[in-house]
Computed example of a mutant assay.
Amino acid sequence: MLIGVHPLLSPDLLHALRSMGHRHDIAIVDANFPCDPDHRRVVRLDGASAADVLEAVLTVLPVETEEPASAWRMIAYDDPAMMLPIFDEFAALVRSHAPDGVLAAVEPNEFKQRAGASYVVVVTGEQRLYGGVVIRKGVVTAPDTRTDHRR
């Protein structure tokens, strides 16, 4: 056990998150998402919801805010205006950790391409349809050395 680390962050997921670089993406997908077994990094968290995994990941992952979008979710039922409850949950979580972060809606095929190209794919036990999100990693800024006394 570690102090201060969200319990959903498994050793495999922590390793993947720590290995990611700036502007790498992480896909958090639902249980129905077709995940290629040849993808290099797949982490399974079958007992957790996608929103819970997103919340856990955002406790340690800086979100990219210097691009038009920080995260992406699918457009549901070919209706860009349709807001499913899980979309509201994703948006609220992104805003709570990155107030300038933007959750963009993209066509399902674009979402699948983004997820497939992600540095890591986390397959959850989420059973709600369209229950996936892709997050882009931002940067961790250096501390202000004028006030940092750890040197």
Results as ranks from 00 to 15, higher is better:
residue 1 M to D: 06
residue 3 I to Y: 06
residue 4 G to D: 06
residue 4 G to M: 05
residue 5 V to T: 12
residue 6 H to K: 08
residue 6 H to W: 05
residue 7 P to L: 10
residue 8 L to C: 07
residue 10 S to C: 03
residue 10 S to G: 05
residue 11 P to D: 11
residue 12 D to C: 00
residue 13 L to F: 11
residue 15 H to K: 12
residue 16 A to D: 13
residue 22 H to N: 14
residue 25 D to S: 15
residue 28 I to M: 14
residue 29 V to Q: 09
residue 32 N to G: 14
residue 32 N to K: 07
residue 35 C to K: 03
residue 36 D to W: 06
residue 36 D to K: 01
residue 37 P to D: 05
residue 38 D to R: 09
residue 42 V to N: 05
residue 42 V to H: 02
residue 43 V to C: 00
residue 45 L to T: 04
residue 45 L to E: 07
residue 49 S to C: 03
residue 49 S to K: 10
residue 50 A to R: 05
residue 54 L to W: 02
residue 54 L to T: 10
residue 59 T to R: 02
residue 60 V to R: 08
residue 61 L to G: 03
residue 62 P to G: 06
residue 64 E to V: 10
residue 66 E to D: 15
residue 66 E to I: 07
residue 67 E to W: 13
residue 69 A to V: 11
residue 72 W to G: 02
residue 73 R to P: 00
residue 74 M to N: 03
residue 75 I to V: 15
residue 79 D to K: 11
residue 79 D to H: 09
residue 79 D to Q: 12
residue 82 M to G: 00
residue 82 M to T: 13
residue 83 M to L: 15
residue 84 L to K: 14
residue 85 P to H: 08
residue 86 I to N: 00
residue 87 F to Y: 03
residue 88 D to C: 01
residue 88 D to I: 02
residue 94 V to P: 01
residue 94 V to G: 07
residue 94 V to D: 03
residue 94 V to A: 09
residue 95 R to H: 14
residue 99 P to I: 14
residue 100 D to G: 02
residue 100 D to M: 13
residue 101 G to A: 09
residue 101 G to I: 14
residue 104 A to K: 14
residue 106 V to A: 08
residue 107 E to N: 12
residue 110 E to C: 12
residue 110 E to R: 15
residue 114 R to H: 05
residue 116 G to K: 02
residue 118 S to K: 06
residue 118 S to H: 03
residue 119 Y to G: 04
residue 120 V to M: 06
residue 121 V to Y: 00
residue 121 V to D: 02
residue 122 V to A: 07
residue 122 V to H: 00
residue 123 V to I: 12
residue 124 T to F: 11
residue 125 G to H: 04
residue 125 G to I: 05
residue 126 E to N: 07
residue 126 E to W: 01
residue 127 Q to W: 03
residue 127 Q to S: 08
residue 128 R to V: 15
residue 129 L to W: 12
residue 130 Y to S: 08
residue 130 Y to R: 08
residue 131 G to K: 08
residue 132 G to P: 04
residue 135 I to W: 08
residue 135 I to A: 05
residue 137 K to Q: 15
residue 139 V to A: 15
residue 141 T to Y: 04
residue 143 P to E: 00
residue 144 D to A: 02
residue 144 D to M: 03
residue 146 R to M: 09
residue 147 T to M: 10
residue 147 T to Q: 10
residue 147 T to I: 13
